[in-house]
């Protein structure tokens, strides 16, 4: 038998999808950081996390990632997309880029994706649940309603989250997320 007829195959890369996931993670990361300074519920949840708690969310096995840490000040801070040199206590990874693309294009809600086993969580489960709740809230603020309903399990109605507060908070989160801090983070990570 001529084994050269069946060559070894080294699979390539999905550049576009990775770039897209990178952008989404950047925005969500900054959004979470901002939501922690704006939304009461997020503040409550963050208060329950231990100090110095660092978690990463990303796509296994080769990125992109987003890393967030709870600083001494008690606030969350988005640290960028590099994982080297950081002690990560909670590692939430989407199992492959294709699944990540589905989640980030809102074809599958985060909860559904979690139920479908797209996430592999390594670390303390209650903390992971807390982070997922934070992400849900961040998504509600960051995304327009029509998209956010696809991403979260229950989009809050008027009683749960009055529209006035929602839009005001949303504006603040956007301003904070795209403030000069963004460029600082980008610069530091390069």
């Amino acid at each position: 038998m001529n084994i050269d007829r069946y060559p070894e195959i080294r699979p390539g890369k999905k550049v576009f999808k990775k770039a897209y996931a990178f952008v989404v993670l950047l925005v969500v990361g900054r959004g979470i950081e901002a939501a922690d300074r704006v939304d009461g519920e997020v503040k409550d949840i963050v208060r329950g996390l231990p100090e110095g708690f660092t978690f990463s969310l990303g796509v296994a096995p080769s990125g992109p990632w987003m890393v967030i840490r709870k600083e001494k000040s008690g606030k969350l801070r988005y640290l960028g997309w590099r994982r080297f040199g950081k002690t990560i206590e909670l590692d939430m990874a989407i199992r492959n880029i294709e699944a990540a693309f589905r989640i980030f294009t809102f074809r599958e809600s985060t909860a559904q994706a979690h139920n479908n086993g797209r996430f592999s969580v390594n670390g303390n489960l209650p903390n992971a649940l807390a982070i997922m709740r934070i992400m849900d809230i961040a998504e509600i603020y960051l995304l327009p309603k029509i998209i956010a309903t696809l991403a979260v399990k229950r989009y809050p109605d008027r009683r749960e989250l009055p529209p006035g507060r929602k839009h005001f908070n949303r504006l603040r989160i956007y301003l904070r997320a795209f403030s000069p801090g963004l460029f600082r983070v980008v610069y530091r990570n390069l």
Partner: peptide
């Protein structure tokens, strides 16, 4: 209940 994993698969939040 927020710290229990069984809240995720429930159809309603």
């Amino acid at each position: 209940t927020m710290a229990d994993g069984a809240r995720l698969p429930n159809p309603e939040e």
